[in-house]
């Protein structure tokens, strides 16, 4: 895995391009920055409204808006690398072949520390993305990405389905993933019924349970915990459950300084 100066990582799709957080001084001291999930071609994203507020959560279906690989490599990655950030590039796609192609091109770009494969898109079909329902689908994608990634570690972000998360973690690590990201969005729906993901404090207990399941079944696999973390105490709960690192997502949308603050707390305070 990558070695992190601090266990607090910005979660995919919740840190913009990085520039927005940097302008607020909100990347200081963080362990790594994860990009929004990139696809080969530019994507406009889904229709509005994309996000709705629920008690202690956000329901979201953004449809992975993004610049596509070429523009990302030309305009976003060099800046991120220049900041001295540890950059994890998240990727997604419509097919196994697209995932592989994106991984192949990213493996040639300088400065990336790891790839993260988003296998937990809760609204994949609605947005024409590969719908990774079964653990073996996830393993196929990971195997294809690992083949192209050369020396780059590959993190697999698996569905946070309590009953199957350990199985998913096992097959993706068998397929070559260096670590698993556990506790992404829960499958949900927007108020108008469109498929979406639920994130934020509402999902924290589920994510924590998922981390526990994976740790129990696969004690040797590094786990990055994610889901609803908004305080240093939340982060410690995941670390105490055996996670090597944590990702902060939704909390940044409410307070962009959250990750930097938790990172500082963990660096300074007793654990």
């Amino acid at each position: 895995m990558i070695d992190l100066p601090n266990p607090v990582v910005v979660a995919a799709g919740c840190g913009g391009t990085g520039r927005e957080l940097a302008a607020l001084g909100a990347l200081e001291g963080i362990g790594a920055f994860t990009t929004r999930s990139l696809t080969l071609n530019p994507r406009a994203g889904g229709p509005a409204p994309r996000i709705a507020e629920t008690p202690s959560g956000l329901v979201h279906s953004t449809g992975l808006p993004g610049p596509g690989l070429e523009i990302f490599l030309a305009t976003e990655l060099p800046w991120l690398v220049q900041q001295g950030l540890r950059v994890v590039v998240s990727l997604s796609g419509a097919s196994v072949a697209e995932h592989a192609e994106v991984a192949r091109r990213l493996a040639q770009a300088p400065g990336i520390r790891a790839l993260e494969v988003d296998l937990a898109v809760p609204d994949a079909r609605a947005h024409g993305l590969l719908d990774v329902r079964e653990p073996f689908h996830a393993a196929n994608v990971v195997a294809a990405v690992v083949r192209e990634a050369q020396d780059l570690p590959v993190l697999a972000k698996v569905r946070s389905d309590v009953l199957r998360v350990a199985e998913s973690a096992r097959v993706v690590t068998d397929a070559g993933a260096s670590a698993v990201v556990v506790g992404g969005p829960q499958a949900a729906a927007l108020p108008d019924g469109r498929p979406a993901g639920l994130s934020g404090p509402a999902v924290l207990p589920l994510a924590l349970r998922c981390v526990g399941e994976v740790r129990a079944a696969l004690p040797g696999v590094p786990v990055i915990g994610c889901g609803g973390i908004s305080t240093a105490a939340d982060a410690r709960a995941f670390l105490d459950a055996g996670a090597v690192a944590v990702q902060v997502g939704t909390a940044l949308l409410h307070d962009p300084t959250t990750a930097a603050r938790i990172a500082a707390d963990l660096a300074g305070g007793p654990s």
Binding site: G16, T17, R50, L253, H254
Partner: peptide, 25 residues
Amino acid sequence: PLTCGTGLCHGCPLPVVGEDGVARV
């Protein structure tokens, strides 16, 4: 409608035509 207001979430799509004449969100 905004969620974060800070450019992080991509939850506020605005369809425009860029300086280059290309349609973008």
